[in-house]
């Protein structure tokens, strides 16, 4: 646990020392603001933040891999992984440390959007429940995307390869809900349930369904498990 925090702290410091942190933050803030403004500019606007919760799925599939791409790929490229793996640290502690750092980065990009919530409460009286559940959904969805990014980063010593791989996996998982209509029958339900975007929708509507939480928890755990395995496999090559 101590090792996990040590690694997470180091990664977080490195992340916020790089311009990448602020570029990603600015990009997300701008996109969220754009989707928010369009959603409340209709004829009968609703005082909700759904406007930027749903499009965030697509934004996160692009931003999460950029957050995670260096975490393990760079260690492999620099060779520092060899020192890390010969220190008295367990492989899962390394992975968890990196994952926590990625979570901190993700939470940081959500912070500026609180401004949009403040604006909304200033000019209207929104229902606070869906706002909170929307953010919870975003955090859970973000966790899932980061875990895919971390897995991709463990598979390559090249950051670009890691990022593109993660984006590819995430895009496929995102379009599964569209693909499900073509599957038909039982497969339609199955494919729909596998899609990482499907489970965000109820959160955006203000519904916290345990089975969505469980889905994201299992998905993330499984991806992190694969990441640990992928690190371990370096010892056996």
């Amino acid at each position: 646990m101590k090792n996990t925090i040590t690694i997470a702290w180091k990664e977080t410091r490195t992340y916020f020392a790089s311009p990448m942190a602020y570029i990603i933050m600015a990009v997300y803030a701008a996109l969220a603001a754009y989707y928010f403004v369009t959603s409340i500019s209709g004829a009968l606007p609703e005082a909700t933040i759904r406007g930027y919760i749903i499009p965030s799925t697509f934004i996160f599939t692009l931003l999460s891999p950029i957050i995670t791409m260096r975490l393990l790929a760079e260690e492999q490229k620099l060779g520092t992984l060899e020192l890390l793996m010969t220190a008295p640290v367990r492989d899962f502690e390394i992975v968890m440390g990196k994952f926590l750092a990625a979570m901190a980065s993700l939470l940081s990009i959500l912070v500026p959007t609180v401004y949009l919530v403040i604006m909304l409460t200033w000019f209207a009286t929104p229902d606070i429940g869906p706002i909170l559940s929307g953010y919870l959904g975003l955090v859970l969805f973000g966790m899932a995307t980061l875990s895919v990014g971390l897995l991709a980063s463990s598979l390559s010593g090249n950051q670009i390869v890691a990022a593109v791989l993660a984006m590819g996996i995430l895009l496929i998982l995102t379009v599964l809900d569209l693909a499900s209509t073509y599957a038909g029958g039982i497969f339609e339900v199955l494919v729909l349930q596998l899609s990482i975007t499907t489970h965000l929708e109820s959160f955006a509507r203000g519904v916290i369904d345990t089975h969505d939480i469980v889905y994201y928890a299992i998905f993330t755990t499984f991806m992190l498990f694969l990441t640990v395995r992928s690190l371990e496999s370096r010892r056996w090559r």
Binding site: K2, T6, I7, K10, T14, S18, G79, T80, A87, P88
Partner: peptide
């Protein structure tokens, strides 16, 4: 192999912690 973006003291402190 070293973390090029870290300072010497910071790096040594990190290595000490994970040990």
């Amino acid at each position: 192999p070293l973390y090029t973006e870290m300072g010497v003291i910071d790096y040594l402190d990190f290595m000490g912690r994970i040990r």
